[in-house]
Nucleic acid binder design. Structure first.
Lengths: 123, 123
DNA sequence: TCGAAGTCTGACATCAGTGTGAAGGTCAAG
DNA sequence: CTTGACCTTCACACTGATGTCAGACTTCGA
């Protein structure tokens, strides 16, 4: 599929699809005329990227973790082919994400508590 | 306390403390010489702000919710003094935060699952 | 009293994520 | 063959969060 269709199907402007490619988050190949050509799976991938960006991750973090969370993973490598430092890096990313979750959850709870007091019969 | 001490105690550069003030996240008063004067509680407030920024919220969102999550809230207003549209806005913020949490948790789980496969006896 | 350290404001720079537009190539339908 | 829709690259601009520096004033310790 070409960039326009991908854009329509994901709601992401073509400008950004090209930007994500520049950031090595997407790797469309090119057809003879130079047009980008995306596989069907790009739709999900783009939605994945958008979700993570909207959640406040940078393209750099996304680039780091994207290889490990794309698809139902028929492509799990055999253990041992993944060097321990990669596993450690990955664990670091997981920890950072967990910190964010904790912070956000804490503050969500505070807001909800406030709201509960202020709007006792609410909702 | 003056800005230098607040900076030392929070690890946040003075540049950013001034920036947060410009963004109406902090409201130090001024002593006679024009120096900013922060109350003790500013330390916690700054840490709160940092946590939220690090979690990917913008100063705008933080400005919106900060009034409702600062301190152990002896200052809960009586229900009814809070207009319903404010409550609705607040609920919207809670929902947005929840979306982020969901997205992050989903991806954390995927990473963890990958890691579990790759490093079966790990950790 | 002098100098160092702290503070003030203001300006300019950077980086990431986006928006927007120009100038030109490709292709299909009339 | 022309027109319109789509694609290409390149470039400039903006916002938000942050770094850095300059010039001036204040405070404090030797």
């Amino acid at each position: 599929m070409r960039i326009g269709e991908l854009s329509r199907r994901t709601g992401v402007p073509t400008r950004l699809l090209r930007y994500y490619e520049e950031q090595h988050l997407l790797h469309p190949d090119r057809s003879g005329n130079g047009y980008r050509s995306y596989p069907e799976s790009a739709v999900a991938r783009v939605q994945q990227i958008r979700g993570l960006l909207d959640s406040g991750l940078t393209t750099e973090m996304i680039r780091a973790i994207l290889p490990y969370l794309c698809g139902p993973d028929a492509l799990v490598p055999d253990p041992g082919s993944v060097p321990p430092e990669t596993a450690a890096l990955l664990q670091g990313h997981i920890d950072r994400i967990q910190s964010r979750i904790d912070c956000l959850a804490r503050n969500r709870d505070r807001l909800a508590a406030y709201l509960a007091v202020v709007r006792p019969g609410g909702r």
